[in-house]
């Protein structure tokens, strides 16, 4: 899959990339990054944007005293400015075996979404870390920043190998252990984890990070086009399920899919996280430019 593309422009299209330049990753938190970035932080610091005045206290830096106010009022006030800090964006991409299923392939759609979000993060000088997981983290490219890192990003994304079983909780533990600062974590997956997604999402949705769960399912998973007596084989763990397709069974399946997605959505809402369900046959451009903006992940 990835061998067909040599760079992001080829994967996403130049026009789409150009439109991505106008977007930025949105977070609802006032962030505290390590480097001065282009984003207002809660910390008052050196910048050009005035925040407020406060009375001088012993030990304050005399450089921030507003001497003009002292001249008029003869009282010492400090002039505070909002400090602009950088944003850390974590993209956690599912590359387990289940993503290879579906027509069109979920893995390609996920890769496009991850590439688009990562590109947006890079062009806005955010700190970007992209991780691929299946049975734990399989690969990671960390601390990318600026357009100069697009090459590294594309080299990582376009050379990912997908397959194998998945352990979401393990991947989340590994990611959480290496995560510092604050920012946004975007999980792109089908969230079809037999051991559950709750523990993993709990780990990722800490106070310092916004979490956005982007669930991507294929049309066949949402509305199966199956018939006959089948032995369904799980591509990740080779688990078998023998079914005789009937209308009733399909009804139950669709109800279960809807319930599963609703449950995930409700879980994310309760944790203050964002959630969006997408289909692998939807155009990535529309998802990024429209749906994700509506969901508040991008602006």
């Amino acid at each position: 899959m990835t061998q067909k593309f040599t760079n992001l422009a080829e994967l996403l299209g130049r026009e789409f990339l150009a439109r991505l330049d106008g977007l930025d990753v949105l977070t609802r938190r006032i962030l505290q990054g390590r480097l001065q970035g282009e984003r207002r932080s809660k910390r008052r610091g050196q910048s050009v944007e005035f925040a407020e005045h406060r009375p001088y206290a012993l030990g304050d830096d005399m450089r921030f005293v507003d001497w003009n106010t002292y001249a008029r009022l003869e009282q010492l006030f400090l002039k505070l400015f909002l400090e602009e800090q950088d944003l850390t964006v974590h993209v956690l991409l599912d590359v387990s075996g289940s993503t290879q299923q579906g027509q069109p392939s979920k893995s390609l759609a996920m890769l496009r979404l991850a590439a688009a979000l990562s590109y947006v993060a890079l062009v806005n000088n955010n700190r970007l870390t992209v991780s691929a997981f299946a049975d734990g983290l399989l690969g990671q490219v960390a601390n990318l920043r600026g357009r100069v890192s697009v090459q590294r990003l594309s080299a990582f994304l376009l050379n990912l190998d997908s397959g194998g079983s998945s352990d979401f909780d393990k991947a989340c533990r590994q990611l959480e252990a290496g995560r510092v600062g604050s920012g946004v974590t975007v999980v792109i997956s089908d969230f079809l984890f037999k051991e559950g997604y709750q523990e993993g999402l709990k780990r990722l949705s800490g106070p310092r990070y916004d979490l956005f769960a982007l669930q991507l399912l294929s049309p066949q998973e949402l509305s199966p086009d199956l018939t006959g007596d089948l032995r369904l084989r799980d591509v990740e763990d080779s688990d078998l399920a023998e079914v005789t397709i009937s209308r009733a069974l399909l009804d139950y399946y669709k109800r279960n899919v809807a319930a599963y997605c609703n449950e995930l959505s409700a879980f994310c809402t309760r944790r203050g996280s964002g959630y969006m369900l997408a289909r692998s046959d939807e155009p990535t451009q529309g998802l990024v430019l429209n749906a994700l903006r509506r969901k508040g992940l991008l602006q």
């Binding site: 089908d190 998973e221 006959g228 007596d229 089948l230 369904l232 591509v235 009937s246 139950y252 279960n256």
Partner: peptide, 22 residues
């Protein structure tokens, strides 16, 4: 003695739930 057709899918998670419900 059904001769079932084998078909790979993403996950048997939801199918097994559906069969149980049925």
């Amino acid at each position: 003695k059904l001769r079932r057709r084998e078909m790979p899918i993403s996950s048997t998670l939801l199918w097994k739930r559906a069969v149980q419900d049925l």
